[in-house]
Computed example of a mutant assay.
Amino acid sequence: MSEFQFDAPLFQVPNGSWVFAEVPFAVADQVDELTSGRQGGFGSVRVEVTLGPTTWRTSLFPDKGRRTFVLPVKRAVRTAAGVDAGDTVRVALRLVDV
């Protein structure tokens, strides 16, 4: 399976403006297994994501501190969905290179 749906909390990095969605461990394990040997720079994984009314392509990035992947969520996407850091969002994610 290369498509996933999950609820994820949005968090803002300390002292920064980046906001990310934290991928649940079970989904992250499956993504890691499906993309092993095909991950890009820094262990990134290319994905297509839908959050609220917006669908876009981006990458998941491994976060060693959280022990999972994180998904960057741009301000325009958050604004269109009416969400921000601290909210939990519904994410539909599809692996691009699988």
Rank of each mutant, 00 (worst) to 15 (best):
T68W: 05
V19N: 06
V73N: 03
G65S: 14
T55M: 09
D7K: 14
S2M: 09
G52N: 04
R66C: 08
Q5P: 00
L71S: 03
S59T: 12
P24N: 07
F20K: 00
F6Q: 01
V70Q: 02
G16Q: 13
L93P: 04
D63C: 12
G41V: 13
A26C: 04
G52Q: 05
P53G: 00
P53F: 08
F42K: 07
R94F: 08
A76P: 03
W18L: 15
D87N: 15
K64L: 10
V77P: 14
G37Y: 12
V19I: 15
P53M: 01
G52Y: 09
S44K: 00
G40F: 01
G82L: 07
F61S: 04
F69Q: 02
V77E: 10
T50H: 04
S36N: 13
V98P: 09
R46P: 15
F4D: 02
P53Q: 01
L60G: 01
Q12M: 12
N15A: 14
R94G: 03
K74P: 04
A26R: 11
R66T: 06
A8P: 00
S17I: 11
S44D: 03
R38E: 08
E22C: 08
A26K: 12
V77F: 12
T50D: 00
A92T: 13
G43R: 05
V23G: 07
F25R: 15
V45C: 06
P62H: 08
A28N: 08
A8D: 02
V73T: 06
A81C: 05
A26D: 15
G40C: 03
R67S: 15
T58S: 09
D84R: 11
F69L: 08
D84E: 11
K64A: 14
T55Y: 13
A21R: 11
G52E: 03
V27E: 02
G41A: 14
T88N: 09
T35G: 09
P24Q: 04
D97Q: 11
G43P: 04
D84I: 00
L95C: 09
T54A: 13
Q30V: 14
E33F: 10
F25Q: 15
P9E: 14
F61R: 05
Q12V: 08
A28V: 06
G86V: 03
Q12T: 12
L10N: 01
P72W: 09
L71Q: 05
T50G: 01
D7F: 07
F6M: 03
G37A: 11
R57P: 07
G41I: 12
T68S: 14
A76I: 03
V31T: 07
V45N: 02
V31S: 10
F20V: 02
A28F: 06
T35V: 13
T79H: 04
V83I: 15
P53N: 00
P9H: 11
S59D: 07
G86Y: 05
A28P: 05
S36W: 12
D32E: 15
R90W: 09
V89T: 03
V47A: 01
L71I: 02
T88H: 06
L95G: 06
R75W: 02
L93T: 08
V70N: 00
F20N: 00
K64C: 01
D87T: 02
V98Q: 05
E48M: 12
A80F: 07
R67A: 15
V98T: 06
E33Y: 10
L10W: 04
E22I: 13
G82Q: 07
